[in-house]
């Protein structure tokens, strides 16, 4: 009888904890050993996004300093993308509108079409969506830099003559915290995941003063 009661309490508790979903730090972490009072302890060096530098639709320089201490969401796209991009941009616009007034939040979209998507092309595209570069940066860059970035975020992006539009890329939205740690991935093509992302951004915002 007591056992059953204990089991119930346990189930109840686990149900509670799963409500406030934790956002773990993702990636391949490193560990260092350190001696404390003659005891060996392990420290975790969490994986974080390396420094970067790109230009956005208004020729602003965008680098790690811009997002330092800010929560941001990033994705990969290209302006002439015929497949999943319109849906991703529609969902991203929802996120943009939700956090337009939030100073601690930014959006970075990397174009992977380093040939066609120059700064003026991105500017025209941004104008058509009606977005401001103070919140949502559409980023142009050199081929290697862009693909290195995709690798740093651990998502797929490549030139692929067989893919619609000539490039293949992941449809993920990537949530990054103020310390450059990847906290979660979302399917940027679905409304459900976009709603979850918005919820998680609030969770992170509330956890950081």
């Amino acid at each position: 009888m007591r056992l059953i009661a204990a089991a119930f309490v346990a189930i109840f508790l686990s149900a509670c904890t799963s409500e406030t979903k934790e956002l773990p730090i993702l990636g391949r972490h490193d560990f260092t050993k350190r001696m404390v009072d003659g005891q060996e302890v392990m420290d975790t060096l969490y994986y974080s996004i390396p420094d970067f530098e790109f230009y956005d639709q208004d020729s602003n320089r965008v680098n790690e300093n811009l997002v330092d201490g800010k929560i941001y969401v990033t994705d990969f796209f290209f302006t002439s993308c015929p497949s999943i991009c319109p849906q991703m941009k529609r969902n991203m616009l929802t996120v943009y509108e939700e956090f337009l007034q939030e100073d601690r939040f930014q959006l970075l979209s990397h174009s992977i079409d380093f040939i066609k998507d120059s700064v003026p092309v991105l500017k025209k595209y941004a104008g058509k969506i009606g977005i401001s570069s103070s919140k949502w940066h559409l980023l142009a860059g050199e081929k290697d830099e862009i693909y290195d970035m995709a690798e740093a975020y651990m998502v797929a992006a490549s030139e692929d003559p067989k893919a619609p539009g000539g490039f293949a890329h992941s449809g993920a939205f990537i949530l990054v915290d103020g310390e450059g740690h990847i906290r979660a991935y979302y399917d940027g093509t679905t409304k459900e995941d976009t709603e979850l992302l918005i919820k998680d951004i609030y969770t992170l915002l509330n956890a950081t003063p």
Partner: peptide
């Protein structure tokens, strides 16, 4: 729908 939207409203001035 991925482009024109589920309810056919298009997307901003792109679609």
């Amino acid at each position: 729908a991925s482009c024109h939207g589920e309810s056919g409203k298009g997307f901003q001035e792109l679609i």
